[in-house]
Amino acid sequence: MSKIRFATIWLAGCSGCHMSFLDMDEWLIELADQVDVVYSPVGSDLKDYPENVDVCLVEGGVANEDNLELIQQVRDRTKTLISFGDCAVTANIPAMRNMLGGRDPVLKRGYIELGDNSPQLPHEPGIVPELLDQVIPVHQVVPIDIFMPGCPPSADRIKATIEPLLNGKEPAMEGREMLKFG
């Protein structure tokens, strides 16, 4: 039997969920035995998201056009998509910019009002991705199979979510241990 093709991606988040993923410590070695890590900012050097991925953890909300493009590609190429951590599930802290009321006020606030030397708006089409009007949770853009809240989800919670999947089972996302936000 071929190994499970495993991936993680990172959109608008702080990487804390990935750090928590690494906190699984020695279980990571066990995981590495059972899966092929085909794409991950912390476990692989590939630049393009491959086809036929079995499981993918998505950290972070959708904040810019790059995020949007990537998540659509990921959805198309992945069987089980897991919304990984509060930013993916709720947009969380990145979404605090939404209260400023859209893309332009955010850029103005960040680059003009708070800019130190020669304040200017970033504009490099094709290089710097355009911001979306709002940062939104991943499930508002593509269907999600499993939600794993937490800021970050603890290593135990991550393990309890992934482990059953490796054995072809659904993880039981219920109770304080698995569901508490924050």
Partner: peptide
């Protein structure tokens, strides 16, 4: 509120966040 979310088994909200300016 956090406890209530756990109690009712809420893993995400289906409704779009409104992000009010409060």
């Amino acid at each position: 509120l956090q406890d209530a979310a756990i109690e009712v088994g809420m893993d995400h909200t289906r409704f779009d966040y409104r992000f009010p300016d409060r």
